[in-house]
């Protein structure tokens, strides 16, 4: 079950907005799944299969974090 983001501190939401913002060339679906995963993680509401699904999605896309470009 997805966790509600409104329970998060605004500083954490701001960090998610900044790092996982969709911009040109980035895989929007991966970023959205990453966001869900992190939000759920902060509420202890995830398992290994969620993590694997995100990694497998990352294998399909080409989202590179800053510094790896």
């Amino acid at each position: 079950m997805a966790t509600d983001e409104k329970d998060l501190d605004p500083a954490i939401t701001a960090a998610l907005d900044k790092v996982l913002a969709a911009s040109t060339g980035e895989d929007v679906e991966l970023l959205a799944r990453m966001r869900n995963l992190i939000v759920n993680c902060l509420s202890d509401n995830y398992d290994q299969s969620d993590v694997r699904a995100v990694i497998e999605l990352a294998m399909e896309g080409d989202v590179l974090p800053e510094g790896d470009h």
Partner: peptide, 16 residues
């Protein structure tokens, strides 16, 4: 891909 995911997690953690 796992490295990418880890890097994104790290960046969120640092920014937060």
């Amino acid at each position: 891909a796992a490295e990418k995911v880890k890097a994104l997690i790290d960046r969120v953690a640092t920014e937060a």
